[in-house]
Design a protein around this nucleic acid. Structure first.
Lengths: 193, 193
DNA sequence: ACGTTGTCGAACACGCTGTTCGCGTATGCG
DNA sequence: CGCATACGCGAACAGCGTGTTCGACAACGT
């Protein structure tokens, strides 16, 4: 039973759209709650009935889109080693506007941090057994942090450069740069002190 | 002629120290100017006579330390390809406190962004001629962004984990992970579409 | 010793936040 | 359709942080 008043839906939709539009125009930090209210034609008290503050709205806006990403990333065990990164790029491409607002230069760093942590944990879980088996001189955390930072960094760069190259191409470039290093670490070089 | 009143020196020193201490305790965002003033025993109007706002103080605090880094990084042309990253790690290690406050999880992202940009530009300048010569399928910007993000990401991870491993070891791990990918790109693979 | 220069801190105007409350009205349901 | 309810509205408010101003005072360099 989807017992949700139409008005509630409208309110939330307008707020999300207003937020994204304003972030793209002025940047997250420079926006006040009142700005969002004016743009969305929503009353002050109504806003605070739905969200605790500006950041709650931001996170909620990302939640709309996040769940599909979570699901996509959970398929990770099957396809390939750097599948999560490709999935992330494709997800971003499918939701360009949202990513531009939430992850781009103009967005806050909250969402960025979430993605970073998620990806780093995912990669760590994936790399742990392999690196352990190889007895590599590179700790899992370091390798995972390396790959996650590179991927997120590339994502942000991409977002801020209007998604040139397309998601597959970017994923291939990421793979070309990241995979050899990981393969080398798996070969368990012992020139690491 | 170092015509600077002792009082000015004291004021600035106290403010910088108070800022760093408070950031380490509470995080940059949660600090008010008044907090800094109380801790530093400095009057309100005095603060605003020296700095435009909280962020100005932050940047000025980093400036103290930044200039040496700039100088170190300019030696980049000589030693080796990933020398700048090693120099950055060593610089951070030498100024652990400051980096922990300014680049760590508790610090704002202003300084992080500065470093990121600096490093990305440096790496791009270094990689451009080589990648061009090799006719690589990976654009300079992408390769530079990849390496810079990975390096900065590793730096932050390191800072937030109390500098385990020592700067040389970290630099070696970074090199082990990054170099193979760059070498591969320089071999101008044509499996990049 | 003296003029300059820097510091102090109270007071202020301003802007943003998050809450409250009484009043309407759209909505869903019987 | 008609009704109770749940929701939206917006003015008003208290609270907090910012950045500025000003007069009085103290430290500084010469």
């Amino acid at each position: 039973m989807e017992r949700v008043d139409r008005r509630v839906r409208r309110t939330r939709r307008e707020l999300h759209e207003a937020l994204i539009a304003l972030v793209l125009e002025r940047g997250y930090e420079k926006i006040t709650v009142q700005d969002i209210l004016d743009r969305a034609d929503v009353g002050r008290s109504t806003f605070y009935a739905h969200f605790r503050d500006k950041e709650s709205l931001l996170l909620a806006s990302f939640d709309d889109v996040r769940e599909r990403l979570w699901a996509d990333l959970d398929d990770t065990a099957r396809p390939g080693p750097d599948y999560p990164v490709r999935a992330l790029f494709e997800h971003a491409y499918r939701h360009r506007m949202v990513y531009q607002a939430l992850c781009g230069r103009r967005g806050g760093d909250v969402v960025r941090r979430h993605l970073h942590r998620l990806l780093a944990d995912l990669l760590a879980a994936h790399l742990r057994p392999r690196l352990a088996a190889a007895g590599s001189g590179v700790p899992v955390e370091v390798a995972a942090e390396f790959c996650a930072s590179a991927a997120i960094g590339l994502l942000i760069w991409w977002v801020d450069h209007d998604f040139r190259y397309g998601p597959e191409r970017l994923a291939r470039m990421y793979h070309a740069l990241a995979a050899p290093g990981i393969r080398a670490a798996l070969r368990a070089d012992d020139d690491h002190g």
